[in-house]
Structure formats: C-alpha cells, structure tokens
Amino acid sequence: MRAAIEFVGDFFYLLLDTLRAIMPALSNGRGRVLAWRNIWMQMNRIGVESIPIVCLVMFCIGAILAMQIAPELARFGIVPVTADVVALATFREMGPLVSAVVMTGFGGAAIAAEIGTMVVGEEIEAMEAMAIDPIRFLVVPRVLAGMVMMVCLTVLGDLAAMFGGLVASALLLHLGALQYVHHALAILKVGDFLTGLVKAGVFGVLITAIACFLGLKVRGGAEGVGLNTSKTVVFTIVALIVVDLIFTSVFFYLGV
C-alpha cells in the first residue's frame, strides 16, 4: 500500500517536472529548434504507426455496436436510432478509449523499452552529467507528441467507427446511408465531440508520461526493461479506465 502511494506520488512529481519543463523546452533560444524537431519525430513514431490499427479497430467497433443495438431498437420500431447510439457511444467514449489502448500497445510500450534501455546503457546518467535534463530532453517531447497524436487518432477513430456503423446498418439493417448520417449529425452536439477530445488529450499525456516514468525507473539490465515494459501496458490501461471514470462522472455532474 505504502509502495503504491509512493509510486503514484513519484509519478505526480514527474508530471509536475514535465509541466515545469515544457515552457523552457519550447522557448529558450537554442534548444527550441531541436525541441520542435524532436516533437515532430516523436509524433511520427508514437502516432503514425497506430493510425491503421485504430481505424481498423474502430471500424469494427462501430459495426459491432450497430449490430448489437439494432435488434433491441427494432422491438420499439426505431431502428434509425442505431445511428444516434453509435454516434454518442463513439464520440463520448469508445473513440478516445480504444485509440488510447492501441497507442498504449504501440507508443507506450516502445517508449518504456527505449528509455529503459537508455537507463541500462548509462545514457541517462551521461545526459545528466552533460547538464542536459532528461525530463526536458526526453520526456517533454514524448508527452507533447502523445497529447497531440492522441487527439488526431481519436478524430480518425471516431470517423472510422461511424463509417463501420454505417456499413453495418446499410448491409444488415437496411438503414439508408443518408438517414444514418442525418440521424448521427442531429444527435451529436459540439459538447460530445469536445469532451471526447479533452479526454483523448489527457489520455495521450497519461500514456506517454507513465511510459517515460516506468522507463526511467528501470533497474537491472535487459530483464528490468522487459518487466517495466509490460508493467507500462498494464498500469496504463488501468490508469486510463480510472481517469475515464473520473472524467465521465465530472461530465455527468456538469451535464455536458
């Protein structure tokens, strides 16, 4: 228990240090070009690989949702409402969450393994000894890239899921595409879209920060790297769900 609290405490310290390092990293004269280039590189690495997977998975989820819900709705004679349900579930919940899980598998694990290997190879120590702050140099670009890419991934995933729902509806439920789109657009409010994206941004920070944190915490050779890489995936998924719950309850109370 004590260990768990210390762990979470340490993690928040890292988050705090990261926040503190963001402005200097992006604005101080010389490091600026490097920092932006670094962020761009990380965005490519963390996010781009996940795009096809997120689209595929979200397409399937959209179709699954439609097929699960339609029979229920058919009993009340309101099959077109399928589009409403798919849209709300996707934009508010499934889009950010599923994209985050995929990014955890790709980006999170890769970051933890990479930074862990750097710890084992004395690279982090060397960096410190050269007066280069590993938080500023390694963590900040990854966290920022994670945040931006998570938002992008979620938008793509949302669209893919809507398309999946549309295909399933058209093929199996004899729901016209136009009617589907019409329904979806009618039900979605800007708030649904935004709450999803806010969540996505926070998830992006969470995934990359946990990965960096556990990467930096690696001890004892290749074994430690493997251990912390799998820990990263498990802890991140738990953290994602818990944070999601918190967000959802807050949105629930606020009525957005």
Binding site: R30, G121, E122, A126, A129, M130, A131, I132
Partner: peptide, 30 residues
C-alpha cells in the same frame, strides 16, 4: 557539470544517434 567531461565505463553513447550526432549534442545544447 558542464565544466567536467565524463567518460563512462561503457562509453554511454546514445544508441539512437550516430557518432556525429552524439558528439554534437552537448555543444548544440549549450
């Protein structure tokens, strides 16, 4: 730290960078 040069036991070169980039890094940063 900047006034001290440290050679680590393993060399501690950054594995994701070429020798050129490794050497350039501290000077670029500082």
């Amino acid at each position: 730290r900047k006034s001290v040069g440290v050679l680590f036991q393993s060399g501690a070169l950054f594995n994701s960078m070429t020798l050129r980039e490794n050497l350039a890094l501290p000077v670029r940063e500082h």
